[in-house]
Design a protein around this nucleic acid. Sequence first.
RNA 1: GCCCCCAUCGUCCAGCGGUCUAGGACGCCGGCCUUUCACGCCGGUAACACGGGUUCGAAUCCCGUUGGGGGUACCA
Length: 487
Amino acid sequence: MSVRVRFPPSPTGHLHVGTGRTVLYNWLFARHHGGVMVFRVDDTDAERSTEEFLDDIIEGLRWLGLDWDEGIVTGGPVGEYRQSRRLARYREVARELVAAGRAYYDFATPGQLEALRAEAAAAGRSPVYDGRFRLPDHEAAARVAAGEAAPIRFAVPRPGETVFTDAIRGELRFDHANVDDFVLLRSDGTPTYHLASSVDDVDHAITHVIRGEDLLPSTPKHILISRAMGAAEAVYAHLSLLTGPDGAKLSKRHGATSLRAYRDEGILPEAMRNYLAILGWSPGMDEEIVSLETMVGRFDLGAVSRNPAVFDLAKLEWMNGVYIRALSPDEFVARSLPFVEAAVGRPLQPAEHAAFASVAPLVQERARRLTEVGAQVRFLFSEVEIDPESWDAVMAAPESSAVLEASVTALASVADWDEGSIEAALRAALAAGGISARKGLQPIRVAVTGSRVSPPLFESLAALGRERTLERIRSATGRLGAGSGLQ
RNA sequence: GCCCCCAUCGUCCAGCGGUCUAGGACGCCGGCCUUUCACGCCGGUAACACGGGUUCGAAUCCCGUUGGGGGUACCA
């Protein structure tokens, strides 16, 4: 039987990086085995589910370069892949289970259940509802017939236990003494997550359920439902959770958690994908920069780590830098342009585009995020904004003033305004003044780019143009001469 | 409280009874390169949580302790 996996997000928020990793693993598993990936939506929570979030999730998947074979947008044999449109089917299954004696209408009151939990807690036992208030079938049927609303609960066999082999963790066993008669269908007729999810997995003939470890304790319930439906149960694989530096489940308080945020902050999708793949799975080689093809070829659930993994931003950024440098010059320009325009605050003119392209390779070499590109080349397209710290650190040197004046003279007489000529002129001027390039070029850099950190100077001046270069140096000289430093 | 999962450098991963004086990557530290910052290159720092077993032999197997995490709803 061919492999069928699923990705069932709940559209109640932006696509989370942890969820992104889970889809990735499902996708890699499916592709590795030539299987099918099903994309369904768990939107039974009508209160919190929105179309906007669904769109964000779809966009996120596409951004990561992950596709699917059946489901949302794509369609498929099931017809409907949104749980909110399959309500009738869940009710049908719940009723069938009642008819088969595997589930029952429960008339226990909230107060009774509450008391039960309190009692169990006090006695140090598991706070599980064991169905002790279950009514004889004919009595329950009579009350339902009379129009009384009641939830349908699964009748967990007791004593008993559910044993299964997790593809990542090995054999796991759960004593039913710790599994309660959970609700399948609420008294208002809506299905719980356990019911809807399990029915979908059965109806979609899912063979492998690869999901987060947070669902591990619910697995016995899902297996119980599948078996009661007479279906061959899927293989379960529980991925450890992604955590923040403090070891707790990754959440907003650790910083950005949505994939969208990383995209907006200049992370390349291929870098994110690679990082996520390596975070908790080892392709079994020293090299960690791995192509998608290699990942698909080597992916194996048995090689997935059981340990929780700390989401390490520093490593992601390093990897992003590696991917940025691997881009062709043209690609780099195309992909960083939006970030440059965002930094400049307007679209670039055709002529400016050329200027950017000329310095782009220099920036590509040193950027770890696309957002840095904008900051680095902004001086070419906007008025200089002198960074106070840079100014104070560099302009305080006694030779600054002389260097600036000499450079104006030297640059003014450069015949051809190109990198080579500019470098020759500037070096000659500095040599005449007995000043090293190391010290002498800094004042010029600050005057022209506004910061002591910038792309290589000569190329930058060439791209800026003679007029603006001289203008900026003169302006800095004036400011220095006024003795007041920065305003 | 109860149930479950996990436990190798700061972080991620390798190790699946002997070849481990424990390997790789990120980070960090130092050096080289150098017009700044980066990149690149070279070198260094740093771990088998603890206690019992099993075994000729344990990072590797078992048990316990401790620690961390997750789950405990008519949420998903």
